[in-house]
Design a protein around this nucleic acid. Structure first.
Length: 519
RNA sequence: GCGCUCUUAGCUCAGUUUGGUAGAGCAGCUGACUUUUAAUCAGUUGGUCGAUGGUUCGAGUCCAUCAGGGCGCACCA
């Protein structure tokens, strides 16, 4: 059974389900951040399918302090370290602030993936006072919070420690203030220069109201506040939160003890890993969510994210083999739609991979050529890929198929430009490659005969393919050796696209010259 | 140090919650398609389920211990 169906079976009968997720917009969102998004979206879609009244909300944690510079080139942002992200200017001033800048890019991916969420910004929540009552309760019961910290996570807080971060009214920093007293109205705090290593407080000591956006809860308590205030019933988290005594445990304990509410259903999920760091740098991989969405078609990206069970890590590799396999598996999954006895789990995966939120959407039935073929055709110069694949297809493509075909072609081009190793490229060599000198005499003889035979050949794929076989018999030469000879002189590698059709796309004189090694 | 997770066919993984004769896809192999490519179709090989011990009429499944892999947390979110 598909993991999401199992998950929903565990739910109690409560009809209203609120699924929540969040992200701190402190830099370009990594592709791994999409895993949680897709997991929650899949749960959300499935809930509606099962007849629950479901909502999917997504919080932008833009009141968090800037605790590192997104890129070293932004050294001019040094002075903003410690200030709320929504108070830091955007790197290029295209948007009002840094938080908005980064989350906008992330949300643009949501849209393409068909992820529909109700978004909210923590700055608005705090400033509008929606958290005020919760903050008061937490501050009033700070002793219980300290106790939970001690018993659950084993961290000892001084008796004066308060779970609140005031915004320094002098320097505007939020990450450098230490609160030490609350009288029910105002919080006393100290903006300490040595509070954290990544930012320097101004030294101001002050006292002020923690309400209406003048303070922020630390992460663990902020989580509690969201759960308590918004009635969240389902929220998974990456394994970084799910260690014993980690933030999740502390938050759940606080929610129960301070607010008497049950913990939302957790879905602990593993990370999405992109092939080892060494490989990624050598391939110059951009692993931002935006980059991955530019590469993979949306339904393939969804497929990649949700076909693995949440508790399993996903290892993504942009190697040719891995990419071809990914698309092939997606195509098999796609083909299952029209098979009468298809594996039901495969059908579930396919359903939730589709971009459209409508489970009965008509736009999921299409069949387009596989990745190998498109990869080969895209790399042949002066060839209109769409025309060529249409010519081979038994029936005319539908508009929907054209759309997906174009998207797949774009994926191949993106892969070639950003990820492909030289050895993975299929480049028609302008000159005879050096490796051709390693050809055996038999292979050379074969190419020579082929060159002559091509002179009067019918220039059509199957006819050419047959000509190749016939020529190899004349030499005679084992066929694998014959084919690799062809690929070596054309591409400098031992394999390639189906030779007959390939020839038909190429110029007769060019091939005759290339195969005539004696020249 | 604390904790999570994984180990099942060559590869990627289902199956473990509620024990009952080992599964899928790919690869491989065989055959077909008037001839073998990173094509199509049909068929098919292949696993003492990481190790040891225990519970049981019966263990991939439950319990304990061990080994190996991956990862997280340690007062950041």
């Amino acid at each position: 059974m598909f993991w999401v169906d199992k998950l929903i079976k565990q739910l109690d009968g409560q009809t209203l389900q609120i699924v929540n997720d969040s992200k701190t917009p402190s830099g370009r969102a990594h592709v791994g951040a999409l895993r949680g998004v897709i997991i929650h979206d899949t749960i959300f879609r499935a809930l509606k399918e099962y007849g629950f009244e479901a909502h999917y909300t997504f919080g932008v944690d833009d009141y968090d302090p800037l605790d590192e510079l997104p890129y070293s080139k932004y050294e001019q942002f040094q002075e903003f370290l410690g200030k709320p992200l929504c108070e830091v200017p955007a790197p290029d001033n295209t948007t009002s602030d840094m938080a908005d800048y980064y989350i906008s890019e992330f949300f643009s991916v949501f849209k393409e993936l068909g992820v529909q969420v109700t978004t909210y910004r923590l700055r608005d929540i705090y400033r509008s006072g929606q958290f005020d009552a919760t903050i008061d309760r937490i501050l009033t019961k700070a002793d219980q919070v300290r106790d939970i910290y001690r018993t659950v996570s084993g961290s000892i807080r001084p008796p004066t420690w308060l779970p609140i971060q005031m915004i320094c009214e002098k320097c505007g920093r939020i990450g450098t203030t230490e609160a030490y007293a609350y009288d029910g109205q105002e919080v006393s705090y100290h903006c300490r220069p040595d509070m954290v290593t990544w930012a320097t407080g101004c030294g101001y000591k002050g006292k002020g109201s923690p309400f209406s956006g003048r303070s922020k809860l630390p992460w663990k308590l902020e989580w509690v506040a969201k759960w308590a205030n918004q009635g969240i019933t389902i929220e998974g988290a990456g394994k970084d939160h799910n260690s014993k005594g980690g933030s999740r445990d502390v938050a759940v304990a606080c929610l129960k003890q301070l607010f008497g509410k049950p913990a939302p259903l957790n879905i602990p999920y593993e990370f999405f890993l992109v092939e080892g760091a060494k490989m990624s740098s050598s391939r110059g991989i951009g692993v931002a969510a935006r980059d991955m969405a530019d590469f993979l078609p949306p339904e393939v990206l969804r497929f990649l994210m949700l076909r693995s069970q949440p508790n399993r890590p996903i290892n993504f590799s942009p190697s040719e083999d891995a990419i071809v396999k990914l698309f092939n598996e997606f195509d098999r999954c796609q083909a299952a739609i029209s098979k009468p006895n298809a594996n039901p789990e495969i059908l579930r995966i396919r359903r939730f991979s589709q971009v459209s939120r409508d489970p009965n959407a008509a736009d999921i039935e299409y069949t387009i050529p596989g990745m190998q073929l498109i990869q080969a055709l895209v790399q042949l110069p002066h060839l209109d890929v769409v025309t060529e694949v249409q010519r081979r297809n038994p029936r005319p493509f539908t508009d929907l198929e054209f759309k997906h075909l174009h998207r797949r072609i774009a994926a191949v081009k993106y892969w070639l430009e950003h990820y492909a190793e030289d050895s993975e490229r299929l480049e028609l060599q302008q000159e005879l490659p050096d490796v051709a000198s390693n050809l055996s005499d038999l292979q050379k003889d074969f190419l020579q005969r082929l060159s002559v035979a091509l002179k009067d050949a019918v220039w059509e794929g199957n006819a050419l393919q047959n000509l190749i076989f016939a020529t190899s018999k004349l030499v005679p030469i084992p066929q694998p050796a014959a084919f690799s000879a062809i690929y070596i002189v054309l591409f400098g590698r031992v394999q390639g696209p189906r030779a007959g059709p390939l020839f038909s796309y190429l110029d007769r004189d060019f091939l005759m010259t290339r195969f005539n090694l004696k020249e």
